[in-house]
Design a protein around this nucleic acid. Structure first.
Lengths: 111, 111
DNA sequence: ACGGGTGGTTACCGGCGGGATACCGGCCGG
DNA sequence: CCGGCCGGTATCCCGCCGGTAACCACCCGT
């Protein structure tokens, strides 16, 4: 039923790593610079942000463009593919918000 | 923008662990026994399956019911909450299949 | 009595994801 | 010349996730 080469291993659905989902949502409104990403993602370190962005690039969800300077600007933006992911992600967000209480309940009563 | 107590930490969206997504899809048709889950999830060990199921229970997505015997049967089934998750998950699966080629391309051209 | 299936538990272990910290070159303003 | 912002890289470290292997009680059929 699920062979060893399972889709979920390649699929960026589990959108990748810990921060990938937030990064994508940060880029929803348009391209942003490195430091403009660090700010809203409270707590992320430069290294981890770089890692995550490189991962998103590898998966074709994000493009890195260097606007040669000086001053030099580096911007990260969604590719059409990345942009297309926003829809299903929104569905997931909606689900989460809709069932927030049940999720909290389950967690508490479980302990 | 994303405070420390970020939804994605509690949300089972990144459906949980490595196997959770497949388990849920396995239970789509109805409750299954422990061994009926092990079979289709090729390669999963008893321990890891137990872990994953306990996790899904804690999140209120799966119920464990022991039909007292003898013979004793243990069945795992989706809760209404778990069942409601099938919709957004289907959206994600659809997206993945739809963009399969682009994903492969991105991976290859990236190396 | 014994083997086999069911439904696990326990101990151990390696890899990797992610965080902290330090450092870096380039360019800017003062 | 000094400091600071930008966009990173290098290094170390720790925890957790997932896998392996061994073991377990209980029940069944022969």
């Amino acid at each position: 039923m699920f062979d060893p080469v399972c889709p979920s291993d390649l699929s960026p659905i589990r959108v990748g790593d810990k921060w990938a989902g937030m990064i994508i949502r940060c880029l929803e409104q348009g391209p942003r610079r490195f430091s403009e990403l660090r700010a809203p993602l409270r707590g992320i370190t430069a290294k981890v942000l770089t890692q995550s962005l490189r991962g998103l690039e590898r998966n074709g969800l994000v493009v890195r463009t260097v606007h040669a300077g000086p001053p030099r600007r580096v911007e990260y933006g969604l590719t059409p593919l990345g942009r297309s992911l926003l829809e299903p992600m929104a569905a997931l967000c909606a689900w989460t918000e809709e069932h927030w209480d049940e999720l909290l309940d389950a967690r508490e009563t479980a302990i």
